[in-house]
Design a binder for these strands. Structure first.
Lengths: 108, 108
DNA sequence: AGATTCAATCGTTGATCGCCGATAAACGTT
DNA sequence: AACGTTTATCGGCGATCAACGATTGAATCT
């Protein structure tokens, strides 16, 4: 039987969805804020423009090493950046990257 | 010296940042799209309004069971919903939830 | 130099993810 | 009732996450 045409792919493209670089980038950014602690860190930094690492630790019910891990993840995503200020480290958001996240989500 | 008052907590609240329900909710939504495959699924559903599960499977280079897992995660986040249509299941985005994600991210 | 402070890193542990094949469950069809 | 189709779930595997304490590294202050 002619039967199952239901085997048609989406869109009529014969191949799989190509590895979408934008999907990967968005996923990476979303992953950065896919944890309550990281959301709070980002919002804290946005609200204060800049913040010492120690203050962030004091604001969260987590160990210093754990917070440092989250900061590292956020830094790797590009959402935040930290510059050394003497013995301390001052963190702040990367506005462009944050804007990129906002636009990509808005464009969904 | 009067010394550095830098020992001050954030905001001047003596306690830790309270468990922020909004942060958890946003993290949950972000987590839903924190994987390239799930981003592609969401975009696919947005672009087509609705899509059978089988079609989604055909669009991704993943096993059927894996796609089903991703769909389950997306469903649990509320971003998509699926209604049974005979032996098949028709998935579609939940516009309100998607809008919520957009607004929360935009409000960052 | 020595002591102190601050932050990053290391090493460990338990939980979860992401993937798969295989199996089960739901439904329509013959 | 038996079959085929479609989707969800189960079990297993390796990899990664999230958390912590302890240690190290860098910079400042006595």
């Amino acid at each position: 039987m002619a039967k199952k045409q239901s085997k048609k792919k989406c869109d009529n493209s014969p191949v799989k969805l190509k590895a979408d670089p934008m999907a990967e980038e968005l996923a990476k950014l979303a992953w950065a804020i896919a944890h309550p602690a990281r959301v709070q860190i980002v919002r804290l930094l946005i609200g204060r423009d800049a913040c010492m690492c120690g203050e962030i630790v004091d604001c969260l019910p987590l160990a210093q090493s754990t917070v440092s891990q989250h900061l590292k993840i956020l830094k790797e995503s590009g959402l935040i950046q930290g510059e050394v200020d003497g013995p301390k480290v001052c963190y702040c958001v990367n506005p462009e990257r944050l804007e990129q996240l906002k636009q990509w989500v808005a464009a969904l």
